[in-house]
């Protein structure tokens, strides 16, 4: 079953190119024409990603996460979020790579089939990097005001963190 995900990408490509040929399109020329736009995207998101990565690196290297974890532990306990997953939850809205490496260490310490391991897996499987999305998408169109985006996205993330434990308890225990 894990292998299924390995077939998604090739089949996706097969459908796009196959359908293009079927419609008698010069797939090669059309592909190259579209690929040129990749450069504009690259240039338009670089500034906002630089800003994001500065903040992420500073938060990681200063070990500020430890301080936030300590402060938020009682709240996590109250909401039945396993404290082990807290650093991952805090980092996941700003850094996909950072939260993934914490996730890996949780899995190797607690085991993938433990309660904490399962909750962490569901959390990782149900969230995206909120501020990365904000930086990339708004950066690409040169918008600096984000209105209610961050609040609403963080509400969605928060929902995932609370519900992950609940659904794991309902389905497995």
């Amino acid at each position: 079953m894990t292998n299924i995900s390995n077939y998604i990408l090739p089949v996706f490509l097969l459908i796009i190119i196959g359908f293009g040929l079927y419609k008698r399109i010069d797939v090669f020329a059309v592909f190259i024409d579209g690929a040129k736009r990749g450069f504009d995207v690259f240039l338009s998101i670089l500034p906002s990603l630089t800003a994001l990565f500065l903040a992420v690196q500073m938060l990681k290297t200063s070990q500020g996460i430890d301080i936030i974890t300590k402060v938020l532990s009682p709240i996590a306990n109250f909401l039945k979020i396993p404290v082990e997953t807290l650093p991952m939850c805090i980092l996941s809205p700003i850094s996909g790579g950072g939260s993934l490496s914490i996730y890996e260490s949780i899995i190797s310490e607690c085991g993938p089939d433990s309660y904490v391991g399962r909750v962490a897996s569901v959390m990782m499987g149900s969230t995206e990097t909120t501020f990365y999305a904000i930086a990339v998408y708004f950066g690409s169109v040169g918008i600096k005001k984000i209105r209610h985006t961050a609040i609403c996205s963080l509400c969605a993330d928060f929902t995932s963190f609370i519900l992950a434990g609940l659904f794991v308890r309902l389905l497995f225990y």
Partner: peptide
């Protein structure tokens, strides 16, 4: 780190913009 990521993504961006163009022109 930001430049490294963007450079890695540059290829991905070109690839998917190209495929997106094919998908759009073919009507899929």
């Amino acid at each position: 780190t930001a430049v490294d990521l963007c450079l890695t993504l540059l290829g991905t961006f070109c690839l998917w913009n190209g495929l997106m163009n094919v998908a759009e022109k073919s009507g899929i």
